[in-house]
Simulated assay, not measured.
Amino acid sequence: MEGSEDYPKEHERSITITTTSIHVTALDGLVNVNSLFTIAVFVGLSLTTPHQQSLENKDICDAGPTEAKKLLLFEVVSFSFFLFSSLIAQGLKLAINLLNSKDVDEAFRAHINLKVLRFGMLGSAFGSVMGCVFLVLSMVDVIQIRLGLLSCGSKAAVRAVAALVTLVSTALAAYISTAIYAFTH
């Protein structure tokens, strides 16, 4: 009899642990992806030098200082979003682990609002998505600097940008839908 009374508590605890592990795993994945993208930001910055001639070998296809400035701006904004997202995710992981720790008293648990945690998770995912958007914009500028301006009709640049936008948009759509589901259920 006594064992059956403990069953609902144990069952509830196992559901909480499973949900916690899903959320922590999702946040870990977010931090790992942000780290990889941050590396891409610095690689993009290192590939750009002033007065670089494009591979198109036409002077009208060479990017000017405007593209280099936009590249730098987009890279910094992208890095900022990835850093924002990663810091929020790390804080949420700590809060989730504290919430489920046996060493934390009930008064502290009462102060942690689950809706705020979920909102934070969505905010972290949003930061990662926005970082990706700005990273794509910066990569378009890298492509224009290296392969030639899109406005001059560089076929290589147009194909590279089309592939980049198509593949990243598809991946972001899959990521957004999965992240929203994971963080709201």
Rank of each mutant, 00 (worst) to 15 (best):
P50V: 04
T49L: 10
S85Y: 07
E12Y: 10
I22M: 06
L122H: 11
D6T: 12
Q52M: 12
L117M: 13
R118I: 08
T16Y: 10
F42W: 14
V104P: 03
S78W: 02
L30F: 01
A157D: 02
G131K: 00
V129K: 01
K69Y: 07
L147M: 04
L71I: 00
V76T: 09
L73N: 09
L30E: 05
T16S: 12
A156H: 08
T38P: 00
L122G: 04
C152N: 07
S177Q: 08
G127D: 09
E106P: 02
T166W: 03
T166I: 09
R13E: 13
S80I: 06
S78V: 05
C152F: 06
S80V: 07
D105Y: 11
A162K: 09
V158P: 00
S46F: 08
A179R: 08
D103I: 11
A179F: 04
A182G: 03
E2P: 01
L36N: 12
S80Y: 03
C61P: 00
M130R: 01
Q144Y: 04
K115R: 13
F82C: 03
T19R: 14
V77M: 05
F42Q: 09
T48I: 13
F79W: 13
H51I: 02
C132R: 08
K102I: 05
A174V: 15
F74W: 09
V133C: 04
P50K: 09
V161N: 00
A40K: 03
A40H: 06
F81P: 01
E10T: 10
Y181Q: 07
N113D: 15
L73F: 14
L167G: 04
V165S: 01
P65G: 12
A163S: 06
L122P: 01
L117I: 15
E56H: 11
L172T: 06
F126Y: 12
G127M: 08
S177L: 09
V161Y: 00
L99W: 13
L98Q: 15
Y181C: 06
A89N: 10
I22N: 08
K155A: 05
D141E: 14
V76A: 05
D59K: 15
D62C: 03
P65C: 02
S85L: 06
D6R: 13
Q53V: 13
C132T: 14
F126L: 13
T19Q: 15
F79S: 06
F134E: 03
T166Y: 01
S177A: 13
V43W: 05
L47W: 06
I15V: 13
Y181K: 11
K70L: 10
T66Y: 06
V116Q: 14
S128I: 06
F126D: 06
F134G: 02
Q90W: 11
K58T: 08
A156R: 10
G3E: 15
L167R: 03
E75V: 00
L94S: 11
L45T: 02
A26N: 13
G148W: 02
G153C: 01
C61Y: 02
K70R: 14
